Every structure is written in structure tokens, then in C-alpha cells.
Amino acid sequence: MNTHVSRAMRQLVANRDWLTVYQLPPYAPELNPVEAVWSHLKRSLANLAKHGIDQLNAMVKTRLKRMQYRTSLIEGFLAKTGLDLTPPQPKPL
């Protein structure tokens, strides 16, 4: 059962006026900014020799931390999706 479209999830969403949900296609990596993060990370690790899982783990953590502080990079990953990230206007009372 897909919990994202289950009756329980629809009810949870319906009970929260402040929540806006957009259904995306089941497989759409181009709409997921995380895919760009992983792609960027993998490219940065491609030609490095790792001497064990601990070293690889440290390298991944370091590179993710660097990305975290490059807001323009993160904004680029979001922009690449082409999605409108403007919050919806509040519903009239």
C-alpha cells in the first residue's frame, strides 16, 4: 500500500487547513533536488582513493557540510527542478 495516497494520509491532509500537498509523479528524479545533491557529491568523490569505509564516511560528511554553507549551490539545486517554490496564498476566511 502506498502510504502517501492512503485514506489515512488523505484524512490527515484534509484535517490541516494550513497544509498544501502536491502529488508528484511516482518516479521523477528531475523534480527532487536531493538527486542533484547526490550527483554533485558523487562527482566530488569520483577520482579520490579511499582507504576504507571510515575515510569514505569522513569525506562524505565533509563535502556535505561544505555544501550546506554554499547557499547559492543549494538554491541552484532547487531552481533546477523548475518547481514554483512560492508558498501558496492563505485561504480567505
Rank of each mutant, 00 (worst) to 15 (best):
E30L: 00
L19C: 11
V34K: 00
P29E: 01
L12G: 13
L93Y: 10
T81I: 02
K91Q: 12
L45F: 10
Q23M: 14
L93H: 12
Q11N: 09
R70C: 08
D84Y: 01
R16T: 08
T62Q: 15
L73H: 02
E75Y: 08
Y27R: 07
Q23F: 15
N57R: 15
N57H: 13
R10Q: 13
L56E: 09
V13H: 10
Q89P: 05
S39D: 15
P90R: 14
V34E: 13
T86K: 12
Q11A: 14
L31Y: 07
M1W: 08
Q89G: 06
P29Q: 06
K42A: 08
V37L: 11
E35A: 07
Y69G: 00
Q68N: 05
M1Q: 06
V37W: 03
Q68T: 07
L19M: 14
L31C: 03
Q11Y: 09
K50G: 04
T62M: 12
A46V: 01
Q89R: 14
G52K: 04
L31M: 08
P87I: 07
A46L: 05
W38Y: 13
R43G: 05
L12T: 06
S6D: 02
L64W: 04
Q11G: 10
H51W: 14
Q23A: 15
L64I: 05
G82R: 05
G82K: 03
I74V: 15
A28Y: 04
H51V: 11
L93Q: 14
E35K: 06
